[in-house]
Simulated assay, not measured.
Amino acid sequence: MRWELSAEQADFRAVFAEWLSETCASETVRGWFDSGDHSGFDERMVADGWFGVGSAEDLGGEGGGLVELALAAEELGRVAAPASAWLGSMLAIPTLASMPEAAKALLADGVTTVLAVPAGTLPGGGPGVTDCDGALVGTVATVLAAQRAQRFVVPVADEHGPALRLVEVDQPRVQLRNRALTDRSRSVADVVLDGATGTVIPVDDVAAALEGAALRAAVLVAADALGVMERMLDDTVEYVQQRKQFGAPIGSFQAVKHAAAEMLVKVEAARSIVYFAAASVGSGHADASLHAAAVKAQVCGSAAQAADAALTLHGAIGYTWEHDLQIFYKRAKLDAELFGSPGSWNDLLADRLPLVSARSEGSG
């Protein structure tokens, strides 16, 4: 199956890619990484109106849906943009549908609002925070973009069951414990609540809201992995055409051709499934959870394998700090684990697929 983008989607992708090429030149991105301050990128996204793409206009967005967000994530991955705050916010937005003013503050004004769930597991597990008579107590480990957040959407357990609270970061009983990642294009921190206060987010079905966030996370991380894989393929093909051994470019060697071809197959297979899963989850298809699980497991797993192949084909230079491959290698490896490993999503897929008898009809 080959997924065809609409003319509007293709135009959006081209314009966004052009903006990123100007905003995220390699030396600029490395500067953000070296300083540990990604705010420059976040501020540009908000100022130039990209934060609202893919979200409903009545919530302050620019329109579009999850397919447009997936296209954006793909291009962000292609340049290794430090877009943790964008991703964390896009997971939080659906939970704010019942609070239009909070959604508009995020999408139109850039009041970064991050879903406070562990970045290393599927969103939607048991909350690590309890609501004790209005005082929130507990720790949420490894929250994506916690350092950039001004508000958190926090899953909590109260006397009535699971609930969601909107927590302002700027209060004395909210603390952050920074964590270091090998992938410097992302940031995480532990969020510690010690009696913090929060506003009730009126959501009828909290479990469904968190599952929706998990499916969006699967699609958007897979789209990022696709962009990373595309960039590694482009850089690898360029490199093997330049590097010579025995007087010939190594790209002319059969083994190198096969390895590059395998990377290309992974990219082409991933592209259609990412767009299909985005459309499925965005439209609320009955099998959306299966499609999201498949895309997260397959595309992120393929990107991690492609990263190993790219590193092998680059040889020793691929390991060096000065070469950009190490940036994309680390991002691909983190994408494989971000919001659930391929194994955990495959487990979810196996749990939800119906059992079918191996015996054919009419067999004795």
Rank of each mutant, 00 (worst) to 15 (best):
E8T: 13
R271G: 05
C132E: 15
E62M: 11
L226H: 12
R44I: 14
E230C: 09
H285T: 06
K333H: 11
D131M: 11
A309V: 15
E43I: 15
I93N: 01
A73S: 11
D190P: 11
A214R: 10
R165V: 06
D131K: 09
G126W: 00
V295Y: 03
A286V: 15
V114R: 04
Q305Y: 00
L106Y: 04
E74V: 07
W19Q: 05
A259I: 05
A209P: 04
E322Y: 11
G284Q: 06
G227H: 07
A255I: 05
G61C: 08
Q147W: 00
A304F: 02
R2S: 14
G124D: 08
E337I: 09
I317H: 12
T113C: 14
T28W: 03
S344P: 02
G36I: 01
R231E: 08
M263H: 04
L181T: 08
Q245G: 10
G63C: 08
A135D: 14
P155V: 07
W50Q: 02
L71A: 01
R186K: 11
A189W: 06
A17Y: 01
A116E: 01
P162R: 11
S344R: 11
A85V: 13
V267I: 10
A85S: 13
A248P: 06
P127Y: 03
F152P: 01
A260Y: 00
P82Q: 02
R44M: 06
G40Q: 06
Q298C: 10
V191S: 04
K333G: 03
N178H: 13
A303S: 13
G284R: 05
G124Q: 08
D11S: 15
G161Y: 03
V200F: 01
A269L: 14
G40T: 00
E322L: 12
A72E: 02
D109Q: 14
A255C: 06
T199V: 15
G315A: 06
A135F: 14
A350Y: 04
A10S: 15
A310C: 10
M232I: 06
R216S: 11
S283Q: 13
R165D: 01
D11W: 07
A97D: 08
L353I: 08
A309I: 15
I93F: 03
V137Q: 05
S283H: 12
D351K: 13
K244C: 12
E27V: 15
A141W: 10
G315S: 03
T130C: 12
P162Q: 09
K296L: 07
L5Q: 04
S272W: 00
W86P: 00
R177S: 11
A119Y: 05
A309N: 07
A157N: 13
V153H: 02
A83P: 01
M1A: 14
S341W: 03
F33A: 07
T113H: 09
D58T: 13
L144I: 12
L311Y: 00
D48I: 01
K266L: 12
A80C: 10
T23K: 12
L233A: 13
G364V: 09
